[in-house]
């Protein structure tokens, strides 16, 4: 199979505002069909990176490509291939919903005979069909957010750049937004999305880049980052049996060389007792351990590797960096 052109690629991307460094040499690689999350606190440089990719800012140094096209050399061509939703944006209040989408479809040169049906379908995707003839000013915040998302889709772009698409939304609207993004991904769109609300991204992203103070700290899938963060995995083993049985299992685990540390046991609501152990080894070794445990007569009802959420990972990554800086 031919390797596909990455949809987004940056190499050593730098953006300076005066003597302040907003983006300090970021390398990103986003393949087709990915939902790629930019994670970082406010002011980390996420918006700046996205604006550079959306051709609204020129990089001070480094290169940025969208579907192989350099953003600073051919901005108009890049714009035809991206849909951009800024973090803060306004809407034209005095237009009707369909007029709003019609306007942007014209901006992108969508032929007249396709606009009407396309608008109908987009409104369906974002769930605003019944608001078609309503004025934009009558929409709720969540609806506006969805309308803005719809406007990024009028020209069927390869890449969506969504800067904090769920900011300021209530939980229900957040869930709706997430569902829409999943649907878009199933349509084959590549999505670059930023957020400082980590669980939101963790659930749907195929890859993330953790950014802080303009630097790229880690990038890759959440699992890859997690693995790179700790040598050992945290195993959660649920056991049945009385206290003696649990203690026996505890001791048995302690004798295994691959287990660095056995953490205390806690009772589950359903009567099982959970033991957590940090385990150093590949998945095969985990399977061997499970088999050995069962053969040793321990009544295992649950055996899993704890997945840490993005929040935890993020704190860890930034924590490590801070420690390194302090040292």
């Amino acid at each position: 199979m031919m390797t596909a052109t990455p949809v987004v690629e940056t190499r050593g991307l730098v953006k300076r505002y005066g003597d302040q460094l907003a983006v300090a040499g970021v390398d990103l690689l986003v393949g087709p069909g990915e939902i790629y999350g930019l994670v970082g606190p406010n002011g980390a440089g996420k918006t700046t990176i996205m604006k550079i990719l959306a051709t609204l800012l020129a990089p001070s140094a480094g290169e940025a490509y969208v579907t192989g096209i350099p953003v600073d050399a051919d901005p108009l061509e890049v714009r035809r291939r991206i849909g951009y939703m800024p973090d803060f944006y306004g809407v034209y209040d005095d237009l009707r919903v369909w007029e709003y989408l019609d306007f942007f479809a014209r901006c992108y040169g969508v032929p007249a005979n396709r606009r009407s049906t396309m608008i109908g379908e987009l409104l369906e995707v974002v769930g605003l069909t019944e608001k078609r003839d309503g004025y934009v000013e009558s929409l709720s915040r969540g609806m506006r957010q969805r309308l803005c998302l719809a406007h990024t889709l009028v020209h069927d772009p390869a890449l969506l750049i969504l800067d904090e698409p769920a900011s300021g939304l209530d939980p229900r609207a957040r869930v709706e937004m997430r569902e829409i993004l999943r649907e878009l991904r199933s349509m084959g769109k590549t999505i670059l999305v930023s957020s400082h609300i980590l669980p939101e991204l963790g659930e749907m992203c195929t890859g993330v880049a953790i950014i802080d103070r303009g630097r790229l700290l880690r990038s890759g899938s959440i699992h890859e980052i997690e693995r790179s963060l700790r040598a050992s995995a945290l195993l959660r083993i649920d056991l049945l049996g009385d206290e003696a049985a649990v203690n026996a299992a505890h001791e048995w685990l302690g004798t295994d060389a691959r287990i660095a540390d056995v953490l205390g046991a806690t009772s589950n609501a359903d009567g099982a007792v959970r033991i957590e152990a940090s385990f150093d080894g590949p998945p095969e070794a985990q399977a061997d351990l499970l088999r050995a445990m069962v053969e040793a007569g321990h009544r295992v009802v649950g055996f899993s590797q704890a997945t840490s959420d993005l929040e935890e990972i993020f704190l860890k990554v930034t924590g490590q960096i801070d420690e390194a800086a302090a040292a």
Binding site: G12, T55, S60, D74, P75
Partner: peptide
């Protein structure tokens, strides 16, 4: 946008060029 002005004067490049190995520079 600042810094993009000169890009608009240029003739558009053919689409999907392989990224050049040499930096585009400032």
């Amino acid at each position: 946008p600042v810094g993009m002005r000169w890009a608009f004067r240029r003739r558009a490049r053919p689409a999907a060029l392989p990224p050049p190995a040499v930096g585009v520079g400032d």
